[in-house]
Design a protein around this nucleic acid. Structure first.
Length: 107
DNA sequence: AGACTGATTGTTCCA
DNA sequence: TGGAACAATCAGTCT
């Protein structure tokens, strides 16, 4: 089965599940994942321990390390992910508040 | 109501 | 400049 690659695949297979799926008109782009923040802090650490390794190795070890952590370690990362999610929530809220017609605009 | 898939995010590395 | 392994995640669509 195709790995379906990752990232930057945006409109790769589009809505193969049907074809419609308009999703978000404003698309508030979700927040980042805990892994994103985790990588931010580990990228230098992993690379420091494997100075000179290719991105492939870094990414892999990064994932392994991520799971190697305990919920406790993921706390700071999850916290960031949550914080980012909140940010997304605001956009989502605004996106929900978006005047569909022309009335109700609020401030 | 539950299941699922698609879309999205950030890193590093190189041609 | 973008694509690819790594993982999370969530929202909208489908059954």
């Amino acid at each position: 089965m195709p790995k379906e690659k990752t990232t930057t695949r945006k409109s790769k297979a589009k809505a193969e599940t049907g074809g419609k799926k308009k999703k978000d008109p404003n698309a508030p782009k979700r927040g980042l994942s805990a892994y994103m923040f985790f990588a931010n802090d580990n990228r230098e650490n992993v690379r420091a321990e494997n100075e000179g390794i290719s991105f492939g190795q870094v990414g892999k070890v990064l994932g392994e390390r991520w799971k190697a952590l305990n919920s406790k370690q993921r706390e700071p990362y999850e916290a960031k992910a949550k914080a980012d999610k909140e940010r997304y929530e605001k956009e989502k809220a605004a996106y929900n508040d978006t005047p569909a017609d022309d009335d109700e605009e609020e401030e």
